[in-house]
Amino acid sequence: MGAKSDTELYLQVKKLIIGAVKLKKAPEEIGDNEVLFGEGLGLDSVDALELVIAIEKEFGLKIPDAAVGAQALASVQSIVEYVKKQKHG
């Protein structure tokens, strides 16, 4: 399977967030650098758990702890970067 383009990966992550936390938004309404938690998109700690479960399932990778999670889950861009790093080292 060929590597996904960044555009595809960003869209995939946005759709994943919407599904995981049942967000009433379209993918294009979420900015690549928009803060996901607290101010910004307004996700909470329970959403973080749902998001971790969804990311781990979708991409077959692990988010080992809260410190890694806090960085990786900051925005769509940081999730995309984390996924790319885990997948391709």
């Binding site: 973080a48 758990l49 749902e50 971790v52 702890d65 999670g69």
Partner: peptide, 9 residues
């Protein structure tokens, strides 16, 4: 089922 950052499902 899952635990992340003191939140448990």
């Amino acid at each position: 089922l899952n635990t992340f950052n003191d939140v448990v499902k």
